[in-house]
Write a protein that binds this DNA or RNA. Structure first.
Lengths: 325, 325
DNA sequence: TCAAAAGTGTTATCCTTACACCCATGT
DNA sequence: ACATGGGTGTAAGGATAACACTTTTGA
């Protein structure tokens, strides 16, 4: 080690993507607004003196900044790009951020009172396919991406851009082949193509005038929090297939349609009712409580609960997402 | 924030699990030995001044400590347990460690010369089912775990321990139902049951005398590096199913049996030859180079190469692991 | 000639996907 | 009566898992 190593100027930040699905089947994240009204995630520095573990530190920050006591918490990723710098006195500190995913279920009336919940599709609107293929993809994203591909300087670069676009946005004419999982990859592709405002912010450049820029619709966030959000959604969409995490977002008992709607909210597309139910049955994920719900608006529905026993029966359990609707 | 926050005493360590599969189909990790001969992973502190990103910092450390230039690198997890403390001057520093997985393919003769490669099953021998169910599981692990379950103080605790054991070690009499993926969960279960020497080391306790302890066979590592290794194996076993990472461990061209043996080395169990090949064919993962290999010992085998085009065709591609042998 | 590995055929079973239809309740 | 959601039957197609067998080489 010949070089002069500096390890002092690090701040470890703990950030949380707290997710809930509300009664209108909107997947929401808890955000905090700074002075300028820009959304950011609940976060705070890791304090090695007071925090026994990273996760406990995160829980402490959540409880300080929000009215929630988090239940399920999972580490996502550690982000350490040079862009993330904080000034402390006259010294530049490098901020390394450990992102976490937390899942809760939120009482209906409580959801009303807690203002800072936002639909996560406000930030990543191209991820919501529940009403079919979002218009903005054909009208906005694909044309911009095509220009971006064409503007590459070498053929190799052009091919590489093409490959990334094809893999992320399934740029086939039939629109089929959309994969709901690579949320982060899509975000990063849009970032590479300079279609997000944070590209300019991170580089210290000014936003191009409205007539010129091709920025993709969707609310931005402070720092790299939108990237952390994309990581969280991607992880959740992946995990749901082999771990029963969906129940962390549900009340004790629920109807099957409620469960389906919650899955759809997370996955961002519609499911086939009967296949979904057969899947639940085959995997013995839920059991009837015996109660009925009359709040459904139609015929009363049987109430179900999560079969906790399966946790010891198998390790890989989850809900695969067969599309259709 | 009423409390007095301390964020200064953090050291961010970057550690790498560098994986390769050798010509004898042994999955290996690159280790370094400290003065006492205890194995540890290549690692070094993150230097925010010289390292642009965490990953580049890691790559720099690998190149300094090993004769390798890493190719595929992936972040695993960030470990921040209070146990991890380093003394710096008279001040205690909290070490937070970011673990990475790196995959390489290693020339045969190179493998000979590079001493520090070790089979990863030396550290986690219960994970290798290629020769069938390891004896130690029935002779050693399960009896110890049963005693651990019985020794719980409350019924709730007993049930919880039982559930964890059942989920991790498939404690059914027929021995079926082994899931090769939850490597970390199994490691952590053995840790909870105090069957690993590092439990005592981490707590500052002395190892119980040989007659009394029930420690499970398997080499330990420094710090929490064995936990990081378990995380790496689990992640790799999971990822292989939906991303074509296996090819990072292969030479440019290879025979199908070579590929199968490499998969088996990672997964820790034997695959069914024909089903494996059908899978490769269905997913169009490989293509013939036209060359033949005569080094197989039997009939010459066709050489194949990875079909790179699929990277743009689909996002989810990998090799599912149908067992049998 | 025999060991060692390459390479192929076939089948039962299960899961996925896709149809289409009837039932019970509130307004 | 009708809108709304609850709840079911059935069938084609494909992937999986499990059989067993022939072929080609080197020693």
């Amino acid at each position: 080690m010949a070089t002069n190593i500096q390890t002092e100027n690090i701040e470890l930040e703990l950030s949380a993507v707290i997710v809930s699905v509300n009664e209108f089947d909107t997947p929401e994240v808890l955000v905090i607004k700074d002075e300028k009204g820009v959304a950011q995630l609940p976060a705070g520095p890791f304090d090695p003196v007071h925090h026994t573990t990273l996760e406990l530190g995160l829980r402490a920050w959540i409880m300080e900044q929000t009215p929630f006591t988090p239940g399920y918490v999972e580490q996502l990723y550690t982000f350490g790009n040079r862009g993330r710098v904080a000034m402390k006195g006259k010294e530049a500190k490098r901020v390394v951020s450990v992102g976490y995913l937390a899942l809760t279920w939120c009482e209906e009336d409580q959801a009303e009172r807690l203002a800072p919940w936002r639909s996560w599709y406000e930030f990543l609107p191209w991820e919501d396919w529940r009403q079919g293929r979002p218009e903005m993809i054909d009208k906005h994203i694909l044309p911009s991406l095509k220009r971006w591909i064409a503007s590459a300087e070498t053929q190799t670069e052009r091919d590489d851009r093409k490959r990334r676009c094809a893999a992320c946005f399934a740029m086939r004419d039939d629109g089929a082949g959309w994969d709901y999982e690579p949320v982060l990859e899509r975000y990063e592709l849009l970032y590479s193509a300079r279609l997000l405002p944070e590209v300019f912010r991170d580089k210290g450049e000014k936003l191009p005038p409205v007539e010129e820029h091709e920025l993709v619709p969707g609310r931005s966030m402070r720092y790299d929090h939108r990237r952390i959000l994309a990581t969280a959604i991607g992880r959740l969409r992946g995990k749901i297939k082999y771990r029963p995490v969906i129940f962390e977002l549900m009340p004790e008992s629920f109807t099957l349609l409620q469960l389906q709607k919650t899955m759809e909210a997370i996955g961002g597309y519609q499911l086939h009712k009967q296949n979904f139910r057969r899947l639940l049955e085959n995997n013995r994920l839920v059991e009837e409580t015996g109660e009925m719900s009359k709040k459904t608006g139609g015929r009363p529905a049987a109430l179900f609960q999560f079969r906790k026993e399966i946790l010891s029966e198998r390790v890989a359990i989850g809900v695969k997402m067969s599309p259709s609707g």
